[in-house]
Design a protein around this nucleic acid. Structure first.
Length: 873
RNA sequence: GCCGACGUGGUGGAAUUGGUAGACACACUAGCUUGAGGGGCUAGCGCCGCAAGGCGUGUCGGUUCGAAUCCGACCGUCGGCACCA
């Protein structure tokens, strides 16, 4: 072995070995327990970023660890290759999205390979491959046959200048990102997938995912948003009947039927038919409806905007009292949720209260606190009382608790035919139509005579032409006659092909199944899926906690119900990794535009007197004192990204991997630190030189555990304790940082012992063997080399994980701490098997303890075996 | 606005079931090493204090023999909000 660690050579050797021996090709083997370890597939943006390095290193550490535990592990990789950035790149440099995407994939694949991940590259797929996306189309058609895919109108952002649909991301403060034109809303026909049919199951099954982070389960449950309540019909008053032109009623959904007698107005969405009818008679109202409809379709913006409303002058009748209630159009009522109308109960709902206050609407209290602390809501009004309580002022329904009131009112409404209990979900059906080019075509043909006609299965896939270049004005498919011109499969007459493509979330909803059988030509999935799936461990960013994971859970259930797969939950265990952050530095010249500087270029200096620190950067503007804006997500716009490629060139892949695993636990954010990277590099060099020095003295003799001195025994115990801890940290807790810390401590102990006796060297040989095998998943290249250096002929990649020796862990005595009144006062050493009385006596005999107890009477002594004694005086 | 999480030395973090706060590392300080390079080694390093000791986990309050950990309120930061992926 060489005296100095040279990462480039070490990594090339190890990677060559794995490649030559096809170490990571996973084969179905029913005799062995399988483990499917999957990381979320990357979008091929061009270059790997640190978030990718972190994500795939976590997956790789687990993959390599589980291999060593004897599992048959599959770790695949692919590309989420459709999407908006490819079109944006095409707009700015005129290259077709297909070419741009495939070049990016080639570059990023090479970058991933340089990191030495244990990936079975034979299974690689890209979602833009027709062999992949044809099955999106095929399943869409199956869903359509079952009514799970259907067409209805939906609302999109419309840029009137570019004549194109905009993604939410492309709407900046209500304006088109390229044109700056105020964005309009447009109603167009779109395809939807009926995820709401699975709402109940998707919610209930969350209970059966104990190995998902609780926060993700809670977020999904809240997203699905099951609420039990009542439909209530408010019959139209004569003025409304006249305006609408028919008898009828305004339906609302409410979870608070108990507050029905407190309703003082009705609020409806601007898109509601009654609002449209009223607007026909009033230009002022028509203008307001128009204003609401122009507003954002982004929920976060809807929720923060000022609550505005306008009366329609129309009325409905209270179902019990017959009292007329005025209908208002309100910008905070969403047409897509419930019935697009709500009853306004200002006394008991925060939002209605605010609205009533602004519009001087009456507030009627109908619920009071059951504890008797009666807070009547009256002028000057302070707040709504939105807790559950006892009904008052509610006619025959007064004096009831929440549950009884809802029951009684619902029953009475049902009798009158004006309502019923109902479960409502917040979840909406999944709109998948995108008016964009770079996506999976929706396999439908529109025929003037036959209407919507599915593309016959034998004509699949509907292939996306790869030579078009979008220019920012609409979908190029809609302008390409070669694509859209076709004949109707039913009647044979000229017809038009659907030019919308699918949401890219469709692509990522089942890719993990296709990895099991990427070459299956005749079917979406085959029997190999039964072997590998479900995914045992899924790893990806927390930002996907809701949408991607929910869509994949839905899609899997659809496939289950079509008897394509035998499971409904795709991901057994989930790890949501935190983001990678870095410092943000900027400089704003007087009157000029703010510039950002990469932290790598920023230097910390001190004022001449050794005092205040400040950060400077040397650029084309000279040396500048820059402003530290804090820490944020690595991003292009703030110029604080770190390029993994440069890092690997300078320090090697092992250092990059070690740093990202060591700097913080996987679920937390990771702060970039150049010094930290150097620390990681230094540790690897120390490990290298420790092994070098050890083997330079020749082969160590066999270990004879019985012949060890107390010091040798202590080092051996340290090694086995560290092994036990690291095993638990990686295998159970998935806390790689503390496992690495345990190995750093062990290496410190190994280096601190200068024992050159034969058994001293035997203990060190064993300890270094543990060190190298435990670190192998994190820094596989250097460990591959060190394993050979320690004299082993086998390849580390095929080694088993070491087992702690119970005999080595045995101890005669252990240390305990003694507290007096909960404060640490002394330390004692007691035999491991000492009983409580003996421990208590030893604690009270300690001189520090005696000093603090003095002559005060001992009231209680609490003994926590093996840990501490608390003396209460 | 709604949903979810997080907040511990100069810094990243550790403390796994309510039981020694600050493991490990970075930075810093001092010393050693004429292999001056992002080298190696030794020691110190929460704050106040000469010490004994006191204080200390965002803020305020509570439960407990004992709270970073549990409960309540507040403040701050971050993620998601359905067409970014």
């Amino acid at each position: 072995m060489r005296e100095t660690y040279e990462p480039a050579a070490v990594e090339r050797d190890a990677q060559e070995y794995w490649h030559r021996h096809r170490s990571f090709e996973a084969r179905e083997d029913p005799a062995r327990p399988k483990y499917y370890c999957l990381s979320m597939l990357p979008y091929p943006s061009g270059r790997l970023h640190m978030g990718h390095v972190r994500n795939y290193t976590i997956g790789d550490v687990l993959t390599r660890y589980l291999r060593m535990q004897g599992y048959n592990v599959l770790q695949p990789m692919g590309w989420d290759a459709f999407g908006l950035p490819a079109e944006n790149a095409a707009i700015s440099n005129g290259v077709p999205p297909a070419k741009w995407t495939r070049e990016n994939i080639a570059h990023m694949r090479a970058q991933l390979k340089s990191l030495g991940f244990a990936i079975d590259w034979r299974r690689e797929l890209a979602t833009c491959d027709p062999g992949y996306y044809r099955w999106n189309q095929w399943l869409f058609l199956r869903m359509r046959e079952r009514g799970l895919a259907y067409r209805k109108s939906g609302i999109v952002n419309w840029d009137p200048v570019d004549q194109t649909v905009l993604a939410n991301e492309q709407v900046i403060e209500g304006r088109g990102w390229r044109t700056g034109a105020p964005v309009e809303k447009r109603e167009i026909p779109m395809y939807y997938l009926a995820i709401t049919r699975y709402a109940e199951e998707l919610l209930a099954a969350l209970e059966e995912l104990p190995d998902w982070p609780e926060r993700v389960r809670i977020m999904q449950a809240n997203w699905i948003g099951r609420s039990e309540g009542c439909d209530i019909a408010f019959p139209y008053a004569p003025d409304t009947v006249r305006a609408v032109g028919a008898e009828g009623s305004l339906r609302v959904f409410t979870t608070r039927a108990d507050t029905l007698f407190g309703a003082t107005f009705m609020a409806i969405a601007a898109e509601h038919p009654v609002a449209l009818a009223a607007a026909r008679a009033s230009p002022k109202l028509a203008a307001f409806v128009e204003e609401c409809r122009r507003g954002s379709i982004i929920e976060a913006e809807l929720a923060t905007q000022e609550k505005k409303g306008m009366p329609t002058g129309l009325h409905v009748l209270h179902p019990f009292t017959g009292q007329p209630l005025e209908i208002w159009v309100a910008n905070y009522v969403v047409m897509a949720y419930g019935e697009g109308a709500v009853m306004g109960v200002p006394a008991h709902d925060e939002r209605d209260f605010e609205f009533a206050l602004r519009n001087r609407l009456p507030v009627v209290t109908v619920v009071r606190s059951s504890s008797g602390a009666y807070e009547e809501v009256r002028a000057p009004w302070i707040a709504a009382y939105s807790e559950h309580g006892v009904t008052v002022n509610s006619g025959e329904f007064s004096g009831l608790g929440f549950r009884e009131a809802v029951e009684a009112i619902a029953a009475a409404l049902e009798k009158k035919g004006l309502g019923a209990r109902r479960v409502q979900f917040r979840l909406r059906d999944w709109g998948i139509s995108r008016q964009r080019y770079w996506g999976c075509p929706i396999p439908i043909i529109h025929c003037a005579a036959c209407g919507e006609v599915p593309v016959p299965d034998q004509q699949l896939p509907v292939v996306l032409p790869e030579d078009l270049v979008p220019d920012g004005s609409g979908n190029p498919l809609a302008k390409s006659a070669a694509f859209y011109q076709c004949s109707c499969p039913k009647c044979g007459r000229a017809a038009r092909r659907e030019t919308d493509t699918m949401d890219t979330f469709v692509d990522s909803s089942w890719y993990f199944m296709r990895y099991a059988c990427p070459d299956a030509a005749e079917a979406m999935v085959d029997a190999r899926v039964d072997y590998w799936l479900p995914v045992d461990q899924y790893i990806g960013g927390i930002e996907h906690a809701i949408l991607h994971l929910l869509y994949a859970r839905f899609w899997t259930r659809v496939m289950r119900d079509l008897e394509l797969v035998k499971f409904g939950e795709p991901f057994t265990r989930l790890l949501t990794q935190g983001m990678v952050l870095n410092h943000i530095y900027s400089y704003q010249p007087p009157g000029g535009r703010k510039r950002y500087f990469n932290p790598a270029d920023v230097e910390t200096r001190r004022a001449g007197d050794g005092g205040t620190r400040y950060e400077v950067v040397t650029s084309d503007l000279g040396t500048l004192a820059v402003e530290h804006e804090g820490i944020g997500k690595m991003s292009k716009s703030e110029g604080n990204g770190v390029d993994p490629e440069g890092l690997i060139e300078r320090f090697g892949a092992d250092t990059a991997r070690l740093f990202t695993m060591y700097a913080s636990p996987p679920e937390q954010t990771l702060e970039w630190s150049d010094e930290g990277v150097q620390g990681a590099s230094r540790f690897i060099r120390r490990l290298w030189s420790s092994v070098y020095e050890h083997v330079a003295a020749g082969a160590a003799p066999a270990l004879e555990p019985r012949a060890l001195t107390p010091q040798q025994r202590a080092l051996r115990r340290t090694a086995h304790q560290a092994l036990a801890k690291a095993t638990d940290d990686i295998g159970r807790r998935r806390n790689f940082n503390t496992a690495i810390a345990a190995m750093m401590e062990l290496l410190n102990s190994i280096r601190a012992s200068g024992d050159t006796s034969p058994q001293g060297r035997a203990v060190r040989q064993e300890a270094l063997g543990i060190e190298v095998r435990v670190l192998a998943p994190v820094t596989p290249h250097v460990c591959h080399a060190l394993w050979h250096a320690l004299g082993h002929r086998t390849a580390l990649v095929d080694e088993r994980w070491p087992q702690p020796d119970p005999a080595a862990l045995e101890q005669q005595t252990h240390a305990m701490v003694v507290q007096v009144n909960g404060k640490l006062r002394g330390h004692i050493t007691v035999p491991v098997h000492a009983d409580e009385a003996a421990v208590r006596a030893a604690a009270l005999a300690d001189e520090h303890v005696r000093r603090f107890v003095a002559d005060k009477p001992v009231r209680r002594v609490i003994v926590v075996p093996g840990k501490l004694v608390n003396v209460v005086v």
